[in-house]
Design a protein around this nucleic acid. Sequence first.
DNA 1: ATACATACC
DNA 2: CACTGGTATGTAT
Length: 678
Amino acid sequence: MIVKGARVLDGSANAMMKGKGTEDDRPWQSYHTVYTTAKAGMELVDKEKVQRVVYEMSKGSKYFQNEERKEAFIKQKIDNLRIQCANLTQEDLAHYQKVADRRIVELEASRDLSRIWLHVDMDAFYAAVETLSNPTLKGKPMAVGSMSMLSTANYEARKFGVRAAMPGFIARKLCPELIFVPTDFKKYTYYSDLTRKVFGRYDPNFIAGSLDEAYLDITEVCRERNVKSEEIAQELRAGVYEETGLTCSAGVAPNRLLAKVCSDINKPNGQYVLPNDRMAVMTFVSSLPIRKIGGIGKVTEHILKGVFGINTCEQMLEKSSYICAFFSQSTADFFCSVGLGLGQTDSPQVRFRKSISSERTFSATKDEVLLHKKLEELAEMLSADMQKEGLSGRTLTLKLKTASFEVRTRAVTLQKYISSSEDILKHAKKLLQAELPISVRLIGLRVSQFNGDKCSAKSDPTQKTITNFITSGDVNRNCSSFPDVADHDFVSNAETDMSIDSRQTGQLDWRDPFDGNYLSDVDYQSCTVQKSDGVEEVQTSSNDATSSHYSGLTEVLGSTSYLGQVEGINVKNGSNLLEDERLDSCCQEKTMLWLNDYKCSLCGIELPPSFVEERLEHSDFHLAEKLQKEESSIHQKSVPSQSKGQKDGVTRQSKSKKQKLSQKEGSYTPIDYFFVKK
DNA sequence: ATACATACC
DNA sequence: CACTGGTATGTAT
């Protein structure tokens, strides 16, 4: 099942060389945008021509230059990873092979074929709705959106290569006859509600994604009525058409991740059923391109293909040793589960919105009066949206996109919760002020850390998950259940308020319940529960806060700490567990640093024994970190004003050190590990 | 906690 | 002329 070793690299190397040769002759081939990937209804499109037009229209623009910059980073990342790949010894590979095989067995054991999931996706939704209200559009190429951006295009337009997320002016070049229709969310929401009434007949707890898609657990309907899933899908689609006059496509599969893939197969106005059978699933994923999987986008596809030669889901398993060597456990778990065709099967708990934001693009300016005005308008829009939902939060994030398309975010977390436009503006101004002078083309404001968000332990579903996990000790179940729903609601309207609260949807994700997030939640909880003066301390006194509601935080942390050493969870968890004693002893005895020959006992990072220099540097890093901590704790409290300078100095040193490490080391988690910042 | 990046529609 | 907007989440510091 598992392919070992060096062959892999040879293959990719050849592919790379070939790609390079053609690049000079046909430069457009290297310019990849999200909308040049084929979508349903675009099979007959002359992709070469589309790419050329897109390239010609973009070439030289500020946007294009920024894309080139990003592409260059990714290329470098890939190159570095390939070098690291080549540096792995046979012993390293054997080790990671074992790790991978064990994970795959565990993931396989978690497979659940008992549920039947249906994913329903409206066909060219916005465009179809607009055609309903204006039938003269029927049969003509048409797109919803503006000259700067399209939301969707109908199938006639797609024949020309016109696609959602494509700028309108490029679309017009591809299809001069293209009719532009402005977006009208009220209309889409109205029709969306009609479709959801139909969905509710089959699963009252269906998960609404955006306006045009939903996940239904049809296990019960199939059983109660003794009908095949195929017939349910057929009937549901007919029902939607009856109620709305709109067509949709459906996918049926044992889990949500696969159901989503399936709904795309016979689009438009079609359906595909993948039976609840292990062999059927394995066959299905064996040839499935990884890009079809929700959560694997342009960048991840490039990396997996460029570094490991992975194109299909099956190859995720074939290259699992490399995957386990180079990615965090949660990421590796996700990739491996993709190879196994696993996905979420549970009926999701209720989740709440975590942030609310508002942003606007305008012609780039550095006029501070103008920028201030934009900021004021945003603060008012955001505040209005927040009042509508009764939200207030304590973290405010300012987002800026410079004239050169570089994105910056600046955030503050406040003592008190804010929601008024005055409060928002007051703090937003300060954030903006610090960035001036600057020429920007977009400003955005986001508020998060809501009042009553994570504070109330009872209503927090993740809390329950952790508790269940700890008490049951069931590792597999938790590790293998990935939220696979793409959640997006690019509407900010009142109509969907209910659905925001009731829908589930995690997003992509290669995250499992016990990587950093969950622990952060616990930590955070202990902080906020007892925050009274805004002085938040993470410490053992948090027991007081948690013991009241359940068995106690120490138990959670204790268990985690155990797992942290045994399983190596991830760097972040490991560093949470840092203790000076351990640090001391480990720095004194470097031989003790590497557990099992691979794992750093301090942070959990894995580094093969053959990476001698890297290991030394890694030890130095911990030493530097320790020194930095000591420095800042000495200076911070006694002389606050000086401590900042001191701390900055130390931070900078340590940062450059880490960057150096980043380029050479890189055994473990990060996709971005070799990402060299300028 | 903050910054940045990726992903989804 | 000219490349969105809203939300979630992963990774690193």
